[in-house]
Computed example of a mutant assay.
Amino acid sequence: MELSTLARVTTGITLLTCVLAVAGVHSYAAGRAQRQALVDRLTAAGHVPGTGRRRRFPGLDRRLRRTRLGKKLELRLAATGLDVTPGEFFVYMLAAVTGLWLIGQAALAPFFGPLAGGLGIAVAVQFLNWQRQKRIEKFINQLPELARILANATQAGLALRTAVSMAAEELEAPAGEELGKVAAQLAVGASMDEALGELADRLPSRELVVLVTTLVLSNRAGGQVVSALRNLTETLDERKETRREIRTQLSQVNMTSYAVPVLGVGSLLLMNGVKDGALERMTGSPAGQAAVLVAFALYAVGFVLIRRLSRIDV
C-alpha cells in the first residue's frame, strides 16, 4: 500500500510538473510574440528599438543622464540625429580636449595648453550646433513635399493621424524619422498638439511652426485643411528657393568669418616657426599673456560680428 501511494504521488507530481512546464512554454511564446509585435509596430512608426551597435560607457551614460547638463546634452543630440549617447559624446569631447591641450602645450607654449582645451570644448559645442542646423535645413527642404503628401492624404479622406504615418513611411530622413516619432507618440495616446509641439521644439524654424500651426488649428476646428496645405506648399516652395539664393550670395562672407580666426592661429604658428621659443618667451610675462588673451578675444568678436552681419532671416 505504501509503495502504491508513493507511486501515485510521484505520478501526480510528474504530471503537475509537465503541466506547469507546458504552461510556462506557452506563456514564454506568447510574451515573445507580443514583444515582436510591439517591435514591428514601433519600427513601422519610425522607432527602431536597437541599431545593433553596442553602446559604450553605459555606467557613465546613466549617471550623466541624471544631471541637468546630461539632460540638455541628450536633447541636443536628439536634435542633431547623431547615433551617439550623452556618455559617449562626453568621453569623446574629453579625449579631444586632452589631445588639443597636449598639442597646444607641446607645439606652441605651456600657456596655450588650456586655451587649446577650451577651444576643443567650443568646437564640440559648435559641432552640435552645426549638425542641428544642418538637420533643420534638410528638414525645411522636405517641408513642401511633406505638406503635399499630407494634402493628398487628407483629400483622399484619410485622418490626419493616418496621413502623418503615411508621410513618415514615404519621406526620407530626417523628415521620415521625425514624423515616425510623432506617429509613435500618437499611437500611445498623445494628442496631436503635444506631438507636433515637441516636433517644433526639436527642430525650430519658422516654416515648421507655420505648418504645425496650420495642422493644429485644422485639427481643432475642422477647417479646410486641404486648401490650407495646398497654399502652404506653394509658399514653402517659394521660401525654399529664396533661402537657396541667399545662402549662395552669403557663402563668401561665411568663409571670411572662418578665415579670420584661422589667420590668427596661423600667424602664431608662423611666429614660432621663424624663431623657435618666441611664443614661450612672449607668454612668460603677464603682459604677454594679457596681449594673447586680448588678441584671441578680438578674433572671437570679429567672428561673431561677421556671422551676425551676414545673417538674414527670411
Rank of each mutant, 00 (worst) to 15 (best):
K138W: 10
K72S: 13
N152Q: 07
L94M: 06
V216Q: 13
L158Y: 10
V182N: 04
I306M: 02
N231Q: 07
V48M: 03
P144E: 05
L73H: 01
T242K: 15
G222I: 09
S285P: 07
T214W: 12
R247K: 08
G284T: 02
E198C: 00
E241Y: 07
V274G: 03
G104R: 07
Q126L: 06
L236Y: 03
V182T: 05
C18V: 09
S251H: 11
A116M: 11
F296N: 00
T233V: 04
K134Y: 11
L6F: 05
N141T: 10
L203P: 05
G222E: 11
D61W: 04
A44G: 02
L16N: 13
I312M: 12
A228R: 12
A287Y: 00
Q36M: 14
E280L: 00
L115N: 02
F127W: 07
Q131S: 00
A200N: 08
A147I: 10
A287M: 03
V9L: 14
S205K: 15
P286L: 11
F57G: 05
V188L: 11
S257I: 11
Y92P: 02
R220P: 02
R41L: 13
H47V: 09
G222D: 09
P86A: 05
P286E: 09
S205M: 14
I13N: 15
N152P: 08
V97M: 09
K71L: 14
N219Q: 14
I246D: 03
L20M: 15
W130R: 02
A30F: 15
E280S: 00
L203H: 05
R132A: 00
N254Q: 15
L64Y: 09
L16K: 13
L115G: 03
G87K: 05
V210R: 13
G118I: 04
G50L: 06
R62H: 14
L128Y: 02
F139M: 06
A175F: 03
K275F: 00
A107K: 10
S267N: 03
D201V: 10
A45W: 12
V292G: 01
Q252I: 06
Q126K: 07
T85D: 08
T43P: 08
V188F: 11
E177N: 03
G176R: 09
E74S: 08
L211N: 14
S205R: 13
I121P: 14
L119T: 02
G31T: 14
E169T: 08
F296M: 00
L293V: 01
A290L: 11
P144L: 04
L115W: 02
R220D: 03
